[in-house]
Amino acid sequence: MKGEVKLLPYLDEPTSLVGKTFLLHGQPSRIESIRLHQGTVLVHFEGKDRTAAESLRGIQLFLPKSELPSLPEGAYYDWQLKGLAVVTESGKDLGVLETILYNPAANDVYETSLALIPAHAQFVLSVDLEAGRMVVSDDPGLLK
């Protein structure tokens, strides 16, 4: 379709963005359709032709938090996890979750100044957003 742009979404279900409105170059623009083509997500914004689509190259799209799709219990957005205090189940302070290392071939990894923690239930025991804390297993292999 003419006027489509490639999108690198940070969502499991990019089709949930259909109908959402973003600001593009200061103007509100609604996503009219999303389709998958050869492993790529292609988006068409309402009223955008090929020339307009080319002007969008390299921009980032953000949704207000109120527009984000809800997640199942136990799933979190990255922005909710960054900045959490990370402690072991025995109470050892491992620092603050600073970075999420994305690994499509295996588990993502949460990084603090002291540890690398696989994003897996075996290692991440609990997340308490209200308390600002993540509890991880007492595994010496997590320490840098």
Rank of each mutant, 00 (worst) to 15 (best):
A53V: 06
L11R: 03
V135I: 14
E98D: 15
A53C: 09
T15S: 15
Q27V: 15
L114I: 03
D108H: 10
S137W: 05
E73C: 00
T99G: 02
M134S: 02
P118R: 09
L7Y: 11
E46W: 13
T99C: 00
L42W: 12
F45C: 04
L71C: 01
L36E: 10
A52K: 10
Y76V: 02
K20S: 06
Q27E: 15
D78I: 15
Y110H: 05
E4H: 01
G39Q: 07
K65R: 14
E13M: 10
L116R: 13
E32F: 01
K65N: 06
V135P: 07
L56R: 01
V5P: 07
S29H: 11
E98S: 07
V135Y: 03
I100D: 08
G26S: 00
K6P: 13
A105M: 15
A52G: 05
K92F: 08
L17F: 08
D108R: 07
H37F: 15
L23D: 09
L42C: 12
T51M: 10
F22R: 03
D128C: 06
S90V: 01
V18Y: 02
D138P: 10
L36G: 05
V86I: 08
Y102V: 09
L97I: 05
L97V: 05
G132H: 15
D93V: 05
L8P: 08
K92E: 13
